[in-house]
């Protein structure tokens, strides 16, 4: 368990700072570079009860080659699926640079026994997952049992070994920025490779101030230990404008060193379509229309 003292956050000023970063004007060349970067950082996600092999194969095809005929458009970072579909994704992505991420640990609630969570994680890794997106036990955190939260992350990380571990804080359920900061610090101290905002399954997902406070935790962690860990924003990021705003927050809080898929991810499903539309607008000077973008 960490001995780190809780860090407090002033909500009013945090939100003001996030809003002011949101006013950066990203045009022309900056926008083009930002869009490419955003695409490279996407975890293209499908997390629905009705997900099937066919659905996942379609998504994987799009992840590798988002815009057929436009070879300059990069592949996304990863495809994110439920554990049962990891093997399908792994097969579909063979030979590409796209990694397979799996949610695990009784996603999205995290309210199962530790043994079940570990078994869930082990199954995903056995099926070939390169990355694990685990959830923290928010009930334990909010009731003050930080040790339980911490120890579970440590246990999952031990099981993961070299497999990349993203720890989902589910910030929309934590209630205050103080809590988000505390959960970020706990996760990083416990060994998270990446801290991630949300499951996408609750009302409030990633927001700019949430990303900002998590960036501050990452920056302070790097200052303390010399080690860079990553950020993933997820849930509700649908537009190019939103994606660019997150890049700005990362750039101005953590620096350019974080602007790559090793240290920054955006978990999204429909965002890619909007990014592709904006690329076409920049390249062709007009909007081609949604039907010119492959929807999968």
């Amino acid at each position: 368990m960490t001995t780190l003292a809780p860090v407090t956050v002033d909500a009013v000023m945090l939100e003001a700072r996030a809003a002011s970063l949101g006013k950066r004007s990203i045009k022309n060349e900056a926008k083009r570079v930002g869009i490419d970067l955003a695409i490279r950082c996407i975890d293209l996600t499908t997390l629905e009860g009705k997900d099937s092999e066919g659905r996942v194969r379609s998504l994987c095809a799009k992840a590798v080659s988002p815009r057929p005929g436009w070879p300059s458009i990069p592949s996304v970072a990863a495809v994110c699926v439920y554990p049962n579909l990891v093997a399908v994704a792994k097969d579909a992505l063979r030979g590409s640079s796209v990694r397979v991420a799996s949610v695990a640990t009784a996603f999205p609630s995290g309210l199962s026994a530790l043994e079940v969570k570990l078994a869930d994680t082990a199954a995903a890794i056995a099926a070939g997952a390169d990355e694990i997106d685990m959830v923290i036990d928010r009930g334990a955190f909010l009731s003050g049992d930080e040790r339980k939260v911490f120890d579970e992350i440590v246990a999952v990380k031990a099981l993961c070994g070299p497999v990349h571990l993203k720890v989902i804080l589910e910030t929309g359920e934590l209630g205050t920025y103080d809590n988000i900061r505390r959960a970020s610090d706990l996760a990083l101290e416990a060994g998270a490779d990446v801290i991630k905002t949300s499951t996408g399954k609750v009302g409030t997902n990633a927001t700019p101030p949430t990303a900002l406070v998590m960036c501050e935790a990452l920056r302070d962690f790097a200052r303390r230990t010399g080690e860079r860990r990553g950020l993933k924003v997820a849930g509700g990021v649908r537009t190019t404008k939103q994606a660019l705003a997150y890049l700005v927050i990362v750039k101005e809080t953590l620096g350019d060193a974080w602007l790559n898929p090793d240290l920054f991810r955006i978990g999204a499903s429909s965002l890619l379509d909007d990014l592709l539309m904006q690329v076409e607008k920049l390249e062709l000077g007009h909007y081609a229309g949604a039907d010119y973008i492959p929807k999968d």
Binding site: S25, I26, A30, V33, L259
Partner: peptide, 10 residues
Amino acid sequence: MTTFEYAPAP
């Protein structure tokens, strides 16, 4: 890879 720098936005 080109870095993400803000273009002039007059």
